[in-house]
Simulated assay, not measured.
Amino acid sequence: MTTPLQNHLATGATHLCTCWAVTRSNGVTLGFTDHDLPLSFDGIDFTPESGLSARALASSTGLSVDNTEAIGVLSADAITESDINAGRYDGAVVQTWLVQWDDPSARKLRFYGTIGEITRARGGFQAELRGLTEALNQPQGRSYFKTCSAVLGDARCGVDLSDPACMAEAVAGDTDGQVFALADMAPFNDRWFEQGQLEVLTGAAQGLRGVIKSDALAGGSRQITLWDQIKAPIVAGDQIRLIAGCNKRADTCREKFSNFINFQGFPDIPGNDWLVSVPRSDGANAGGSLFR
């Protein structure tokens, strides 16, 4: 059975355009088209002359990244430099359709993937588009380490991050987006949130996250320092959420989270010192194991 788009292509006189939809991690979807009039379908409005275009799609049977890029102009009403700097487009989902512009129901999805590396120059941007097969290029299988291979709160870990012992909400004070001075938030111990995450819940930076570098108690207050600055304005009064950190060690899993039954590491695996151990003249060489 042929599709409406195939029937249209068979006529030889085509009315075609390209439409792109970019869906950010916070659920905001932006639509763009190279047609000269607006189009709408699937609940998305595709705006023309928005400064976004894409190179010709090129895919292969291998697992390499699809050879395509989105090229656009930074503008106040579409994709802004501040949003790119804040990381709102990192990992955003991209869909591309070939559309009959006088009948948008005749269309074909040609690309589905995510945004990779973004570079900016001369008032514009260039974004790498990564196809679905990109995930298959990542290392697969399990590695054997003393430390845990799970991510805190994921299905293998099983820790409930909504538990009051794992999460706390606070009100931000004056901050540069990297260092936060907060109330003590008892009963959380010193360094409780170290290696965890800070998420902004309200304000201009809503939805943005940062990884916590250090968490120190001093003088009745708690100072949270992130590895990287959140590049969006955070003002006094904005709500933030702190998620506990995990250093992947067995004793932390057992004592901090009471979750040792789900520990995904191998704390008793012999180390390199055992692999290179040899008999010694001053040791007990009775033919037994060298590993004690």
Score class of each variant (00 low, 15 high):
residue 38 P to C: 10
residue 15 H to C: 09
residue 20 W to R: 03
residue 22 V to Y: 06
residue 39 L to G: 06
residue 37 L to H: 09
residue 23 T to F: 03
residue 35 H to Q: 06
residue 10 A to R: 14
residue 10 A to Q: 14
residue 56 A to V: 08
residue 7 N to H: 09
residue 63 L to P: 00
residue 4 P to E: 10
residue 20 W to S: 05
residue 59 S to W: 04
residue 33 T to S: 10
residue 51 G to D: 02
residue 50 S to W: 01
residue 57 L to P: 02
residue 16 L to A: 06
residue 21 A to D: 07
residue 13 A to N: 14
residue 3 T to Y: 07
residue 63 L to C: 01
residue 58 A to W: 02
residue 19 C to T: 15
residue 60 S to N: 12
residue 59 S to V: 09
residue 53 S to D: 05
residue 47 T to G: 00
residue 10 A to F: 07
residue 17 C to A: 15
residue 72 G to F: 03
residue 24 R to C: 13
residue 69 E to S: 09
residue 55 R to H: 02
residue 28 V to A: 13
residue 68 T to M: 15
residue 28 V to F: 11
residue 34 D to E: 14
residue 53 S to V: 05
residue 57 L to E: 01
residue 7 N to A: 13
residue 7 N to P: 00
residue 32 F to R: 04
residue 55 R to Q: 05
residue 47 T to Q: 10
residue 70 A to N: 00
residue 53 S to Y: 05
residue 52 L to P: 01
residue 23 T to R: 13
residue 65 V to R: 11
residue 18 T to S: 12
residue 62 G to D: 15
residue 63 L to D: 13
residue 3 T to A: 10
residue 43 G to V: 02
residue 36 D to S: 13
residue 15 H to A: 14
residue 54 A to R: 01
residue 11 T to D: 05
residue 56 A to T: 09
residue 73 V to W: 10
residue 35 H to E: 07
residue 18 T to Y: 08
residue 10 A to Y: 04
residue 50 S to P: 00
residue 7 N to T: 12
residue 45 D to V: 06
residue 6 Q to Y: 03
residue 57 L to N: 01
residue 69 E to W: 06
residue 63 L to E: 05
